[in-house]
């Protein structure tokens, strides 16, 4: 049952920041993650600050540099259905369409999606885990079939977002409003790995709010895609996913990024794949080589060894698909 809290619906960004400056305050946009965390008693919350009245944080607009600016309150469903996004960044539209379920896509926002708390069942359950201030990561020796194979360090969550890997592949930036004004953080630097801080998922301070996400103009010949493998057809997080944003000159890859979801505690940029394919023509041999390279540093836990052949399979499939797109 959700604990008792005060509720404030901010009328301005400034008011939202002021309200968030008190202890125990939490920002609420779609609420689909926050309310679940409160019900599961993942963290304390004495005040919920709703930002749903801030209409200036809604909508998708073209930016002057030819890219797009996505307001943080834009719903995942709006993002998936937006024709500009579908045209310029199909990988992002695909990622949005793969999120959760229709109900949650209608309710959840892009700002919230990249700030999600981990779905680790120890973190969400009645376990005093390291990330919640305890002294153990239960996933290390426990039921870790859905946990990370890359980037784990004392904590072995996977980052739950589908859109963040696509945004990272597209070199997006996060606009953050705080008491000292706005700052812009590349999404590559937005998420915090457990090696840096085991109790944080993002660089956001308590009274900071994500206000928008901007994506630069697509490079010439850019193709993008997102592919998600999951245990259930709807309402499920990635067992393994791959976001591609690759620039092609004819059939040669000239640049771009490859990002894995379901692999690591943060959206995981696979420079091994990038280095293997950039400057090359993707054929079956190269795709396999790149897939193997992606997993060269992977370390499986007791129950998630399947992720290694799974990532190899999905990376191989997606590289071949984008090369022939």
């Amino acid at each position: 049952m959700i604990p008792e809290f005060n509720y404030v619906r901010a009328q301005s960004l400034t008011e939202a920041q002021q309200q968030l400056s008190t202890d125990g305050a939490r920002v609420c946009a779609g609420g689909s993650d926050l309310l679940g965390c409160l019900r599961d008693e993942v963290f304390d919350c004495s005040k919920v600050v709703s930002v749903t009245g801030l209409d200036e944080l809604r909508g998708i607009t073209r930016s002057r540099d030819g890219g797009v600016n996505i307001g943080a309150l834009t719903t995942i469903a709006e993002l998936a259905a937006n024709s500009t996004v579908q045209e310029l960044y199909p990988g992002l539209a695909q990622a949005a369409a793969e999120v959760a379920s229709p109900q949650l896509r209608n309710q959840g926002t892009i700002g919230g999606n990249i700030c999600q708390k981990p779905r680790c069942w120890y973190y969400r359950g009645e376990f005093e885990c390291l990330r919640k201030g305890g002294d153990t990561c239960y996933a290390m020796a426990g039921e870790n079939q859905y946990h990370c194979i890359l980037g784990g360090y004392r904590c072995y969550i996977v980052h739950p977002s589908d859109t963040a890997p696509a945004l990272l592949a597209l070199n997006a930036s996060v606009q953050i409003a705080g008491p000292r004004g706005e700052r812009v953080v590349p999404i590559e630097d937005f998420h915090v790995a457990p090696r840096d801080d085991v109790q944080r998922e993002t660089v956001l301070e308590d009274n900071e709010i994500v206000v928008a996400i901007s994506i630069p103009q697509p490079a010439s010949g850019l193709r993008s895609s997102y592919r998600k493998v999951r245990a259930r057809g709807s309402w499920d997080f990635a067992l393994a996913g791959v976001a591609l944003a690759l620039a092609f000159d004819a059939d040669r890859v000239t640049g771009g990024r490859v990002v894995l979801s379901g692999a690591a505690p943060i959206p995981w940029r696979s420079r091994e794949v990038e280095n293997t394919i950039i400057g090359q023509r993707i054929d079956a041999t190269l795709a396999r080589e790149a897939a193997d390279a992606a997993m060269s540093e992977a370390a499986a836990l007791k129950n998630n060894g399947y992720k290694i052949p799974l990532f190899k399979g999905v990376i191989e499939e997606q590289l071949l698909a984008i090369a022939s797109a």
Binding site: W121, Y122, G125, F127, G142, R232, G233, S234, W235, D236
Partner: peptide, 18 residues
């Protein structure tokens, strides 16, 4: 010894897409 997936997200009932 506790149940790790005692909720409808982690205990995966099939959906219409399954």
């Amino acid at each position: 010894g506790k149940m790790a997936n005692k909720n409808w997200h982690d205990y995966k009932l099939p959906t219409a897409l399954d």
